[in-house]
């Protein structure tokens, strides 16, 4: 069982909540196989597929601009039954109908795989750099956010959220062999909806930080030393040491003869 299983369920609840609020929810079911996914896309996917940058005037739609609102995180589980493999859920409008807009953007990538234990979570976060891997899609990965642009050129070729989902599946699948299944949720319906997702993200980030901390400890580094003794779990140990030193000093002073 993964520490993120609860949050995988929370995402399902979130989607249901959005449906209850009568948000437009579109579901795409695709086959999660790297080769097939790539073959059907009307643009290139892979290293250096998008080597240049997309200027403002060449942008068809912008997603997750810091001003518009953005939230992005990943979840992983070793329980495949929690994942609806190949499902891409879109809440809100699709790309083709959003010409010239700057949409708020939420992105949740959910990975499944028997080998995806908690330690692998950090590697999943860091190993894949989507940056220039999708033609006509420029991405800036800000901490806990994704800010991206879709170019006019690929929009003309039919770039939509289904395509984006397939491309992301292809990129992640090719950079981590432990990923056996994948599900994606995109949110573009409004700032408030992205903010709600952000509340789940905050909890996930806390757990991710703890995992990272533990991984660093294995390497021999304490990355997050507490500065405040009163909140430190090791305070009793330090107090004992202080007492011992105090006693020792007393004895030294007592034994000192001038």
């Amino acid at each position: 069982m993964s520490v993120f299983d609860t949050y995988v369920n929370k995402i399902s609840e979130y989607v249901e909540g959005m449906k209850a609020k009568e948000r437009r929810v579109t579901v795409f079911n695709v086959s999660f196989s790297s080769a097939q996914i790539k073959d059907n896309l009307p643009f290139k996917v892979g290293p250096d597929a998008n080597p240049g940058i997309i200027l403002r005037q060449d942008t068809y739609v912008e997603l997750g601009n810091p001003e518009a609102g953005s939230c992005a995180f990943i979840l992983s589980t070793d329980n495949p039954s929690l994942i609806r493999n190949g499902r891409i859920t879109l809440i809100g409008p699709d790309i083709p109908e959003s010409s010239g807009k700057s949409l708020p953007f939420g992105q949740v990538l959910i990975f499944g795989g028997a080998g995806l234990d908690d330690k692998e979570h950090e590697s999943l976060q860091q190993s894949c750099f989507v940056g220039d891997s999708i033609e006509g899609y420029m991405i800036r990965s800000l901490p806990q956010n994704v800010w991206s642009r879709v170019s006019k050129n690929v929009a003309e070729k039919g770039f939509d959220f289904e395509c984006l989902g397939k491309a992301l599946m292809s990129v992640y699948k090719s950079c981590n062999s432990k990923i056996e299944s994948m599900e994606i949720v995109f949110v573009a319906s409004g700032k408030e909806d992205v903010k709600l997702l952000d509340e789940i993200s905050a909890q996930v980030q806390k757990i991710s930080r703890e995992i990272v901390k533990e991984n660093w400890k294995i390497k021999g580094y304490d990355i997050d030393c507490e500065f405040d003794c009163s909140s430190c779990a090791d305070k009793p140990v330090c107090d004992d040491i202080r007492e011992v030193l105090k006693e020792k000093r007393k004895k030294t002073i007592t034994n000192t003869k001038y």
């Binding site: 860091q126 930080r209 580094y221 990355i223 997050d224």
Partner: peptide, 10 residues
């Protein structure tokens, strides 16, 4: 933290 420092580098 060290993590923040290295994350920004990457």
């Amino acid at each position: 933290t060290l993590q923040t420092f290295t994350d920004d580098i990457f």
